[in-house]
Amino acid sequence: MINTKHIGRELPPVTFEVEKGRLRFFGKATGETRPEYLDETAALDAGHPSIPAPPTFVFAAELDAGTLFSLLEELQVPLGHILHGEQQFTYHAPVHAGDVLTVQSTIADIYAKKNGELEFVIKDSSVRNQHGHQVLEARSVIVVRNPGEKSV
């Protein structure tokens, strides 16, 4: 069982530069064909300051930094046992190539269901840009399967 003493814990802040090449790669990987999401000139023509970051892109920031995986390792949760249960984004301002974001996450809750067969880790994140403006908030629900723990 994951120790609930970690509830309220702040994870190390992550700085993430939104790069044009990474946005093009993300576009390719998700089958994007609209030119404004792939090409800076097309983005400028469409009225954007640069290539826009798609709605789920910023999730990469903490994955790149290994924030969650480091925590799970410390909590002795095997990577093969985790599932993504829910994901929520609340948008406050646009994000484009060239922005430098800072992600600050907190473990909002940890709880078990089915007598510990499933555990849930809730992570809340606030993302600010280089001007200090909050651009988005995110909430992730991570589900840990504990095959050894059977409900009775």
């Binding site: 798609p54 709605p55 249960g85 948008y91 646009p94």
Partner: peptide, 22 residues
Amino acid sequence: YLARLLTTWAPQWQLRQFHVRF
């Protein structure tokens, strides 16, 4: 993919909240 559906229907900067359960 779902984000592509949304931003094709309306410009991305009109998106306020996006929540999914897997």
